[in-house]
Amino acid sequence: MGAQILGILVAALLSQNFILVKFYGICPFMGVSKKIDTALGMGVAVTFVMALASAACWLVYNLLLIPLNLVYMQTVAFILVIASIVQVVEMFLKKAVPALYKALGVFLPLITTNCAVLGVVLVNVSEGYNFLISVFNGVAGGLGFTLAIVLFASVRERVDKAEPPECFKGFPIALITAGLLALAFMGFSGLSIF
């Protein structure tokens, strides 16, 4: 169990990084990575939602969908669970931690359409993880997401000051930067602890 947890952590952070290797959650990765602060806020929010979603969806899948023979409805069920979790988190933060709520602002509702969240839930189900491992996989995946988006935002703050050719301005140069970051993460690809 300990080795499995360590293995999942290393995989989610480095060798199987959610963004740079598996391509989950590219939209917020490109959209909210202009400043380090907002990138960090997004990362924290996503990590939190991913952990909650992993737990809730595991319960829904194993206690509801399997006994009722409704496994083919998993995509619909999961997205509804995720959407409601995001809504609840949003309302809870608004009441309990208004400062954090303000800092996250518009990013919170956007997490619903972050494919990293749905992705981690689908991976949990297809790998047949138990409850604890599922939740841990959610947290680790979120940390990997945070690592990648913060690194990328730091590079991007500098790239913005550079002068690329006219047609590369904006997103193309950002994508190429992300490509180089992915190249660096490819160096971890042999890394696995099992």
């Binding site: 740079l20 391509f23 590369f168 950002a174 994508l175 190429i176 490509g179 992915a182 190249l183």
Partner: peptide
Amino acid sequence: MPVGGFLVLG
């Protein structure tokens, strides 16, 4: 591999 995806799309 992932690298190529980012570069080519760019």
